[in-house]
Write a protein that binds this DNA or RNA. Structure first.
Lengths: 223, 223
DNA sequence: TCGTATGAAATTGTATGGAAGTGACGACAT
DNA sequence: ATGTCGTCACTTCCATACAATTTCATACGA
């Protein structure tokens, strides 16, 4: 007997594709979009397009102008800094909490993430690396019994990720991120909450280093 | 010449009313709702009802069962604890940041909040007190230049507030909360980030004190 | 030349019709 | 007694029709 695959609804698919196109900058910030545009772009009627726009406007990726249309949000340095601030506040708290109690099974999944990232570094596959970066942070929250923290961070992360898409990413950037992950896990294993928090903090701030450079290089898509 | 009042759309009104009815427990957790129900309850067609349900499902106040309907989320102790954890992580970080830099004008608005809450305590108006409690915390974030932090907290707070509606609230509870607000402001004025963080922490944990009692008293609406 | 009306086009906001999914219930066979 | 199947009511999900609003261009008049 086959388990029923809970197939994705049209709205979910459109939302996922639109989000992806926004995050990868396939749809450049500042673009104007109508519900109709979205619908025909992804092969649906207005309704799924409308619901996707509403959903993404909740995480501030698009701005809905009442009665007029929607615009892909420009990358705002202020929003970026605030998102990073809140993310850091949450993730440092999570890692601290993880140091006092962490699910055994999650620990082995962390190991899997590290291994997968190791492979991604070798093959230079940035997308793969990023997938497991997400999973790494999610697993930390899960192991600490704080999945809600991850759902909040996930939303904030979207803004940060969009900026990361611009970053050229020198060859050894991934290697550095991986080393930071390993430092976090090491501190977690040692139940050293101060070290873990510090490692997490420096890991997260990593991403904002070359923000000024990026803004100078792409003035049109910044606010 | 009068400024045009940007009148509320039907969807917004329905969403606001539904949210309010959920938070005040006028709609008890566990109730099943259809788009049609919402529409006729608040005098609209199914569409605004649908969009309101979708919106509230994002903040996990209702759970949408695909092809079947929606239910008002039950109060979950686990979700409540996680929401409180994340809120504390964010708000303590905000108050710490506020201690290093805080907008002058926001400081006077804090004073207004305290005064208004003083009056609310005198008249015993809990709703009024709560309104200014929100404004107090929002103003802290605003003054620190971290409004995004407040938008995140606001969503988490919904779950906490719903539980607070159950709490009988002894007469001097408000007085205690007000005193805590004053302690936070005092520490902020002194730029004493450790004291401010501690004051905020104890203020937020205040709300969860009698959670076990509540759960025992209302087993039906807990998960 | 400039400001103002007017009207068409585009867009969202709202309502409604219809297809398809889900679970409940009972008839019926085993 | 139990399990399988068909029917039925209910609901969402998606498409589409209609109404309301905004914008833009254009024409007109001072």
């Amino acid at each position: 007997m086959t388990v029923k695959a809970p197939s994705e609804s049209v709205t979910q698919r459109v939302e996922r594709q639109l989000r992806s196109d926004i995050l990868t900058l396939a749809l450049p910030p500042g673009s104007r979009l109508s519900e109709q545009d979205i619908g025909s772009r992804y092969g649906s009627s207005r309704q799924p397009g409308r619901e996707a726009l509403i959903a993404l406007s909740k995480s501030r990726l698009v701005e809905i102008l009442p009665q007029r249309g929607a615009v892909i949000a420009k990358i705002s340095v202020a929003k970026l800094m605030q998102a990073a601030f809140v993310r850091e506040a949450i993730e440092t708290a999570v890692i601290r909490s993880a140091c006092s109690s962490f699910h055994f099974h999650a620990r082995t999944r962390l190991e899997d993430c590290l291994k997968a990232q190791e492979r991604a570094v070798e093959s230079g596959d940035r997308a793969e690396f990023r997938r497991y970066d997400d999973l790494f942070h999610r697993t930390l929250a899960d192991g600490a019994g704080l999945m809600m923290a991850w759902t909040v961070v996930e939303d904030l992360k979207a803004h940060i990720d969009r900026a990361c898409c611009l970053s050229l990413g020198k060859g050894d950037a991934l290697r550095k991120l991986l080393a930071e992950h390993k430092a976090i896990v090491a501190a977690l294993d040692a139940r050293d909450s101060h070290a873990a928090e510090a490692a997490m903090k420096s890991h997260l701030s990593e991403l904002l280093q070359d923000l000024p450079t990026l803004e100078a290089a792409h003035p049109d898509i910044f606010e």
